[in-house]
Amino acid sequence: MSSSSWLLLSLVAVTAAQSTIEEQAKTFLDKFNHEAEDLFYQSSLASWNYNTNITEENVQNMNNAGDKWSAFLKEQSTLAQMYPLQEIQNLTVKLQLQALQQNGSSVLSEDKSKRLNTILNTMSTIYSTGKVCNPDNPQECLLLEPGLNEIMANSLDYNERLWAWESWRSEVGKQLRPLYEEYVVLKNEMARANHYEDYGDYWRGDYEVNGVDGYDYSRGQLIEDVEHTFEEIKPLYEHLHAYVRAKLMNAYPSYISPIGCLPAHLLGDMWGRFWTNLYSLTVPFGQKPNIDVTDAMVDQAWDAQRIFKEAEKFFVSVGLPNMTQGFWENSMLTDPGNVQKAVCHPTAWDLGKGDFRILMCTKVTMDDFLTAHHEMGHIQYDMAYAAQPFLLRNGANEGFHEAVGEIMSLSAATPKHLKSIGLLSPDFQEDNETEINFLLKQALTIVGTLPFTYMLEKWRWMVFKGEIPKDQWMKKWWEMKREIVGVVEPVPHDETYCDPASLFHVSNDYSF
């Protein structure tokens, strides 16, 4: 037999072997998808029940369902290793196997995995149920939502704001400190077992692309791009910072340095994350009609249902689908009040099986009107990829998912749209002054938050990498806050605090 014939037969044999492996992989994935749908849905439903009704029974049910899901994933991840990716030609099959071969938290021992889940659930519970009591009246206690958040959004009393700011960190942050220390250790162990340098590197892996249509993007490039983007917006932020400082000097004349940092408790919310609520103090042309339409919403008797129905109309107007019937029947759109304790931070849920929901303790404000559009943007994205195989139902990356939500809320905030839905009067006219007011309001929300987020994530990356010793977490946190964000702590904090974890995203294990 000629050498060319042998070569042809060899190629046929290799192709047949690849085809056999690929067919086996497809069969394996079909079985996995069928089983995963049910187990993931049960786990998601148990998590939803806990988040909307925080009880010991629900946390136990959530843990049990989560353990079943984790055990299943660990088993299936091991089985998926049997299919070598280099022998799979079908890109859809390869991407699913690649996702499943990534072990995630299931790489930890059973004891450590359970401990990590306990830590995460405990931190979430402390954050959502933590109360601050009035020292003069111990029976008068406030949760973060709505009590403390209400103070931080609306109060102009310097000392009341300081009390709310400090009490939240003292009551909740200190409880979270030992848990967060354990969390860092276990998450790093999980990341390294998955061949990442640390948990920050694991997060950045979400943005990594290897040879898809000839395109590559590394975790290191992400760090470079983040640094570059921050340097680009820094001059604009510094101008905004100086303008806000001048306006705060008028409101709090004896508390603000004309050349120094801004006190952290005066920036519009509990964390200084969004400066939106400073608009009334900083509006350049106050004689113009108010483009913050909160009062109009209240006057027109809007409620949470109306807010979300208007958001749905907005999405339908640009060619996107209505929310499902189940969305309206199962979402929690208002604070249950004293009936039950719930996690009030707005979140969009894709539970699986076409079950999409939003959890939000909606208030009738323009801020929540825009947040509703943001969260519904997440749901629209979830619905758009719902037909994909189970392992591919995700956003391109976390940042893109947020961008989908944010672009919709930005569009909904324009005076033209607000006028079209009757929240600005029919005779409202846009001119240079109203446009400047609008742009300032947008800058308070968007530009003001960028250094906050950059600095927070930089601190977390450094902590996970071990570049900040545990006994210097708070020292470095406030050094970076002053240097990068231009914000100063109103009272000193020692290493018993854990100020970063006083933010939902940190205590609940979300990256930005």
Results as ranks from 00 to 15, higher is better:
19 S>M: 06
19 S>Q: 03
19 S>R: 06
19 S>W: 14
19 S>Y: 14
19 S>I: 14
19 S>L: 06
19 S>E: 03
20 T>H: 04
20 T>V: 05
20 T>F: 02
20 T>M: 04
20 T>Q: 04
20 T>G: 07
20 T>K: 04
20 T>Y: 02
20 T>A: 10
21 I>D: 04
21 I>Q: 04
21 I>F: 03
21 I>A: 03
21 I>G: 10
21 I>R: 00
21 I>T: 10
22 E>L: 08
22 E>V: 04
22 E>Q: 13
23 E>A: 09
23 E>N: 14
23 E>S: 13
24 Q>E: 05
24 Q>F: 00
24 Q>V: 01
24 Q>I: 00
24 Q>R: 02
25 A>D: 01
25 A>S: 06
25 A>H: 00
25 A>I: 14
25 A>M: 02
25 A>G: 07
26 K>V: 15
26 K>T: 14
26 K>F: 06
26 K>D: 15
26 K>Y: 04
27 T>N: 08
27 T>L: 15
27 T>R: 12
27 T>P: 13
27 T>D: 15
28 F>D: 01
28 F>L: 02
28 F>G: 00
28 F>I: 02
28 F>H: 00
28 F>S: 02
29 L>W: 02
29 L>T: 01
29 L>K: 00
29 L>C: 00
30 D>V: 14
30 D>F: 00
30 D>W: 01
30 D>C: 01
30 D>S: 01
30 D>E: 15
30 D>R: 02
30 D>T: 13
30 D>M: 06
31 K>I: 02
31 K>L: 06
31 K>A: 01
31 K>T: 00
31 K>H: 05
31 K>Q: 02
31 K>M: 06
33 N>S: 14
33 N>L: 04
33 N>C: 15
33 N>V: 07
33 N>D: 15
34 H>L: 02
34 H>D: 01
34 H>W: 07
34 H>V: 15
34 H>C: 03
35 E>G: 09
35 E>Y: 02
35 E>L: 06
35 E>H: 04
35 E>I: 05
37 E>D: 02
37 E>R: 01
37 E>H: 01
37 E>F: 00
37 E>I: 00
37 E>W: 01
37 E>A: 03
37 E>T: 04
38 D>S: 01
38 D>W: 00
38 D>P: 00
38 D>G: 02
38 D>H: 01
38 D>K: 01
38 D>M: 02
39 L>S: 11
39 L>G: 14
39 L>F: 12
39 L>W: 09
39 L>A: 14
40 F>G: 07
40 F>E: 14
40 F>D: 15
40 F>S: 12
40 F>Y: 09
40 F>N: 14
40 F>V: 07
40 F>H: 08
40 F>C: 14
40 F>A: 14
40 F>I: 05
41 Y>L: 03
41 Y>Q: 04
41 Y>C: 02
41 Y>H: 03
41 Y>I: 00
42 Q>N: 03
42 Q>L: 15
42 Q>P: 01
42 Q>E: 02
45 L>P: 02
45 L>G: 00
45 L>I: 12
45 L>S: 02
45 L>N: 01
45 L>E: 00
45 L>R: 01
45 L>D: 02
46 A>N: 06
46 A>Q: 03
46 A>R: 03
46 A>G: 04
46 A>V: 03
46 A>C: 04
46 A>F: 04
46 A>Y: 06
46 A>D: 05
46 A>H: 08
48 W>Y: 00
48 W>S: 00
48 W>M: 00
48 W>Q: 00
48 W>F: 00
49 N>C: 02
49 N>E: 14
49 N>S: 10
49 N>V: 03
49 N>Y: 06
49 N>W: 01
49 N>I: 05
50 Y>N: 02
50 Y>V: 03
51 N>T: 03
51 N>M: 06
51 N>L: 05
51 N>P: 01
51 N>G: 04
54 I>E: 07
54 I>Y: 06
54 I>W: 09
54 I>S: 06
54 I>M: 07
54 I>L: 08
56 E>M: 12
56 E>Y: 08
56 E>S: 08
56 E>C: 06
56 E>F: 06
56 E>T: 11
56 E>D: 08
56 E>R: 07
57 E>W: 06
57 E>H: 03
57 E>N: 02
57 E>S: 05
57 E>T: 05
57 E>A: 06
57 E>C: 04
59 V>A: 13
59 V>S: 12
59 V>W: 13
59 V>F: 09
59 V>E: 11
60 Q>V: 13
60 Q>A: 12
60 Q>M: 11
61 N>A: 14
61 N>W: 06
61 N>Y: 11
61 N>C: 13
61 N>D: 12
62 M>N: 05
62 M>D: 02
62 M>P: 02
62 M>Y: 05
62 M>A: 10
62 M>L: 08
62 M>E: 02
62 M>T: 05
62 M>H: 04
62 M>K: 11
63 N>G: 07
63 N>Q: 14
63 N>P: 00
63 N>S: 05
63 N>M: 13
63 N>Y: 08
64 N>I: 13
64 N>A: 14
64 N>W: 06
64 N>Q: 12
64 N>R: 13
64 N>Y: 13
64 N>C: 11
64 N>G: 10
65 A>R: 14
65 A>K: 10
65 A>D: 04
65 A>T: 05
65 A>N: 05
67 D>K: 12
67 D>I: 13
67 D>T: 13
67 D>R: 13
68 K>S: 05
68 K>V: 06
68 K>D: 02
68 K>T: 06
69 W>K: 15
69 W>F: 06
69 W>S: 13
69 W>V: 15
69 W>R: 14
69 W>G: 06
69 W>P: 03
69 W>C: 15
69 W>Y: 05
69 W>L: 14
71 A>R: 13
71 A>F: 09
71 A>Y: 12
71 A>I: 06
71 A>E: 10
71 A>V: 10
72 F>S: 04
72 F>C: 03
72 F>I: 04
72 F>L: 07
72 F>M: 06
72 F>E: 02
72 F>H: 14
72 F>N: 06
72 F>G: 02
72 F>Y: 15
73 L>H: 07
73 L>V: 12
73 L>G: 06
73 L>Q: 10
73 L>Y: 04
73 L>D: 03
73 L>T: 07
74 K>Q: 09
74 K>N: 11
74 K>V: 09
74 K>H: 12
74 K>I: 06
74 K>R: 11
74 K>S: 07
74 K>W: 11
75 E>R: 15
75 E>Q: 15
75 E>H: 15
75 E>N: 14
75 E>F: 13
75 E>C: 14
76 Q>H: 09
76 Q>W: 08
76 Q>N: 02
76 Q>K: 14
76 Q>V: 15
76 Q>Y: 15
76 Q>D: 13
79 L>H: 08
79 L>E: 01
79 L>S: 10
79 L>T: 15
79 L>F: 15
79 L>W: 15
79 L>C: 00
79 L>D: 05
79 L>K: 05
82 M>L: 12
82 M>P: 03
82 M>K: 07
82 M>Y: 08
82 M>D: 04
83 Y>T: 01
83 Y>W: 05
83 Y>V: 14
83 Y>P: 01
84 P>H: 04
84 P>F: 04
84 P>R: 05
84 P>D: 11
84 P>G: 07
84 P>Y: 03
89 Q>S: 11
89 Q>L: 11
89 Q>E: 15
89 Q>K: 14
89 Q>F: 13
89 Q>Y: 13
90 N>Y: 15
90 N>C: 15
90 N>W: 15
90 N>A: 15
90 N>D: 15
91 L>N: 14
91 L>I: 13
91 L>Q: 09
91 L>S: 14
91 L>H: 14
91 L>R: 14
91 L>C: 14
91 L>F: 10
92 T>E: 15
92 T>K: 15
92 T>M: 15
92 T>V: 15
92 T>P: 15
92 T>A: 15
92 T>Y: 15
93 V>G: 01
93 V>D: 03
93 V>C: 03
93 V>W: 03
93 V>E: 05
93 V>P: 15
93 V>M: 04
93 V>A: 05
93 V>F: 05
93 V>Y: 03
93 V>N: 02
95 L>E: 12
95 L>D: 14
95 L>P: 06
95 L>K: 13
96 Q>N: 01
96 Q>D: 02
96 Q>H: 04
96 Q>Y: 03
96 Q>M: 05
96 Q>V: 04
96 Q>R: 04
98 Q>T: 14
98 Q>F: 05
98 Q>K: 10
98 Q>P: 01
98 Q>R: 10
98 Q>G: 12
102 Q>N: 11
102 Q>F: 09
102 Q>W: 13
102 Q>A: 11
102 Q>T: 14
102 Q>D: 11
102 Q>S: 09
102 Q>L: 08
